[in-house]
């Protein structure tokens, strides 16, 4: 089992205002799955994804990653997990401005144990995998949104992680660019990568193999996709 979560809760407390975001979620995800986390705005999708991706900590409940109790880990070990086991793609790309595509993609490798001489080759390989080799030396802010998101995917891939987390990766893109991103994600999943995709659009979520529906911090549905959509050129992402 890759991910095993039980009775996961998240409560935010700020200025005496208590916000209960996740109310005891239980779910399992196997290696090689392509899961959509679907739900309306504010339902807690991103919060769940951040906890699953070691960016945030649950208030209570259990989280086992590859059999390891994540809630017992120190910050240092969480950083290692973030670096080696997961890759993130955000709605707003989160690339470093005035920094080249190459250096942006290389960023996670700065904190990895990979031998220096292998790094550049690895960076070029993943840039090529998202078809961005022709823009390798461009600054990130000189790229279109779709191109930036492809660079962000390359960055998520560079450490060869077990899981890619994508939080509304097509949210800021036009449909043509969106389809390209979904194509890449499906291809990665075909190659064996576990993908966890957060979205509030049913159409987008149907590119996954399994949809977990969330509402008000509770799981309200967990089903395989019957008629899975395959992203193809010319498709209009609604």
């Amino acid at each position: 089992m890759l991910i095993s979560v039980s009775n996961l809760k998240k409560i935010y407390v700020s200025d005496e205002v208590v916000t209960k975001v996740l109310h005891g979620l239980t779910l399992n995800i196997e290696s090689g799955e392509f899961v959509s986390i679907m739900g309306p705005s504010g339902s807690g999708k991103s919060t769940l994804m951040h906890i699953l991706g070691f960016l945030d900590k649950p208030s209570s409940g259990k989280y086992y990653f590859e059999g390891q109790d994540v809630t017992k880990l120190e910050d240092e070990q969480l950083a290692l997990l973030r670096n080696g086991k997961v890759g993130f793609v955000f709605q707003t790309f989160n690339l470093l401005p005035r920094t080249s595509v190459f250096d942006n993609v290389k960023l996670p490798l700065l904190y990895s144990k990979m031998p220096d001489e292998e790094k550049d080759e690895r960076v070029k390989k993943v840039i090529n995998a998202v078809d961005m080799s022709h823009r390798e030396n461009y600054f990130s802010n000189q790229l279109s949104g779709g191109e930036q998101q492809r660079v962000a995917i390359a960055r998520a891939l560079v450490n060869n992680p077990a899981i890619i987390f994508a939080d509304e990766p097509t949210g800021n893109l036009d449909s043509v660019s969106g389809v390209q991103i979904m194509k890449i994600l499906q291809k990665l999943n075909d190659q064996g990568k576990t993908i966890i995709l957060v979205t509030h659009e049913i159409y987008t979520s149907e590119h996954a193999k399994r949809i977990i529906k969330i509402k008000d911090g509770r799981i309200v549905g967990d089903e395989p996709v019957m008629n899975r959509r395959i992203a193809t050129d010319g498709e209009i992402l609604k």
Binding site: L55, D75, E76, A79, L80, R82, N83, G84, F88, N94, L96, L107, P108, L110, Y111, S112, R155, N159
Partner: peptide, 11 residues
């Protein structure tokens, strides 16, 4: 962002 991609406090 750096912490997200694996930098720790010391880094």
């Amino acid at each position: 962002l750096r912490k997200t991609v694996g930098a720790n406090y010391a880094d």
